[in-house]
Design a protein around this nucleic acid. Structure first.
Lengths: 151, 151
DNA sequence: CCTGCATTCATGATACATCATAGTCTTTGT
DNA sequence: ACAAAGACTATGATGTATCATGAATGCAGG
């Protein structure tokens, strides 16, 4: 019956982390959500991704990314101009305000991670990641076949 | 940095699990969400909890529980009658349809957990749970103090 | 050039998360 | 008994998740 507890613990841990992370950003007076921050950060690092590309990197779906981008533009953290090469797309550019926000949030996120992992050794975090990735792989596999898709 | 990857893996794992779990329930033709199922199950086991009690057990907040209960009532899986002892509350009762749904979902959930944890030893799941609980504790602690010092 | 198909994005519908608050009822202190 | 405090629930506002679909554009082959 420990299994019962495992996914509960998983859920609890990630949710508490998000809660703590968001609270620390709010406390710093920065007006952005962690999801928006994540997307903005990815766009800064590569301003020529499609929404689908972005969604894969941040592990969200395209619809969520579209709405997050919409909010980022609304808030003036992101600017768009029509793509010169592809009429379906818009080129995304992080604005000055967006850059300032990213700069402000960066140290907070690092400190959050540190707090969350306090007392865990490198070996432990490594193993944790391994186990989580295995669970992910198990869940991503089509049930009924041990499909050896490339990792 | 591996830290970067850890919370990403955490997020990925739990989301993929939820996705897989919901898909398997849908595939079985049962019309319920896993969150609704979770709440319904808790109510079955104890029909005299407040929404706050329930929210603590399923690790959601009270507002979410209130809305989930509303949907469960709407769908006829849950019935309410005014509490005889407390005018603010309603006594919750799982209906026949609710019971049938619970019965239908139970084996699916067990199978899902098994699939998700395939290839993990008991020791590994135990350690995983321990590490997750530590992260939770770290995040639940007030920032700025490593010990339990009052704020 | 045009057609069939894939890609890219937007949006509606539904559900959950979080915060805040209001309304109702209960308990407590005096 | 009464007022203050607290508990319980409902709901508005905002944001995200997921699925489905539609509209616009790009592209390859005929």
């Amino acid at each position: 019956m420990l299994n019962d507890i495992l996914f509960y613990s998983l859920d609890k841990a990630i949710r508490q982390y998000r809660k703590m992370a968001q609270a620390s950003i709010d406390r710093a007076g920065v007006d952005i959500t962690i999801d928006q921050w994540l997307v903005l950060r990815v766009i800064l690092e590569n301003d020529d991704l499609t929404q689908t590309d972005i969604s894969e990197r941040v592990f969200k779906d395209q619809a969520s990314v579209a709405r997050i981008i919409g909010l980022l533009v609304l808030r003036g953290l992101l600017a768009t101009e029509p793509s010169p090469t592809d009429g379906r797309r818009a080129r995304l550019r992080v604005t000055e305000a967006g850059q300032r926000t990213l700069d402000a949030v960066q140290p907070i996120v690092l400190s959050n991670r540190q707090q969350a992992l306090a007392g865990l050794s490198e070996a432990e975090t490594t193993q944790l990641r391994l186990l989580l990735d295995r669970i992910y792989a198990n869940c991503a596999a089509k049930s009924g076949s041990q499909d050896g898709a490339p990792s």
